[in-house]
């Protein structure tokens, strides 16, 4: 056994720069995925087949194929159509498109967990469909969807490591570089695994805080 822990200290700033990019990529793609997910989720509950079927196909396509292939397709595949994105843009776009598919299902599940009577009551008082959606249904749906959103956010943070395959200089890519000069794979990988864990741990704590903060008094889960 030849574990040299000093390589962490020597390459600390380099690895932290990678971690910083991982955080930025994760936040951006989670956010874009969230907005896209709400849009696609709304399409998925539409009764109009011209809206419903394309959105369903989208979700099935992104859920049914490997994220790594999606990243390659966006970065390398699109160049066949003379669309040349930078690795950074392509990485974030692929992650966002993928996350939007998953988050749309989470959002749809949240909407459909709200009893039909809520919409009926809102409509029966004269609120329009959109007003009922944004003032009555969605606020409750998002609360119900917080636990599955937490899952998806953590998945996104971890899956962001895949964009190292197209040379985005995030944490995993930086780690590989450090290993190639220090030959300490165990030390470096265990260290960045710990960094990923820290990020997801902060995320789960934050989401748990949101759950408590927005718990509805008198409902399940409220204190």
């Amino acid at each position: 056994m030849n574990l040299d822990w000093s390589v962490i200290g020597e390459n600390f700033n380099y690895l932290m720069a990678g971690a910083e990019l991982t955080i930025i990529i994760s936040i951006l793609s989670i956010f874009l995925g969230f907005v896209g997910g709400i849009f696609i989720g709304m399409c998925r509950i539409s009764k109009n087949p011209l809206i419903y079927y394309p959105s369903t196909a989208y979700v099935e396509a992104f859920r049914g194929t490997p994220l790594l292939i999606q990243i390659f397709l966006v970065y390398l595949g699109l160049s066949s159509f003379n669309i040349q994105l930078s690795a950074w843009d392509a990485g974030i776009l692929a992650l966002s498109l993928n996350s939007a598919a998953y988050q749309s299902e989470i959002f749809r599940g949240g909407i459909q967990s709200i009893p039909k009577g809520q919409m009926e009551a809102a409509r029966s008082m004269g609120l329009t469909y959109n007003q009922s959606m944004f003032k009555v249904i969605i606020p409750q749906a998002l609360r119900n969807a917080l636990p599955p959103y937490t899952n998806e956010f953590c998945t996104m943070i971890k899956d962001s490591s895949l964009v190292s395959a197209i040379s985005v200089m995030e944490l995993t890519w930086s780690a590989k570089n450090v290993i190639s000069v220090t030959f300490q794979p165990f030390v470096v990988y265990i260290f960045i695994a710990f960094l990923y864990f820290l990020m997801t741990f902060v995320t789960t704590r934050f989401m748990r805080y949101l759950e408590k903060r927005y718990a509805i008094p008198g409902m399940m889960g409220a204190e």
């Binding site: 009893p115 009577g117 029966s124 008082m125 004269g126 329009t128 606020p139 409750q140 609360r143």
Partner: peptide, 20 residues
């Protein structure tokens, strides 16, 4: 219809209050 409904309110069997 929304104007009509605002003048013709409904009380439901299951109350349907906005829980949040």
């Amino acid at each position: 219809i929304n104007v009509v409904r605002s003048q013709m309110n409904m009380v439901f069997q299951n109350f349907n209050l906005f829980m949040h």
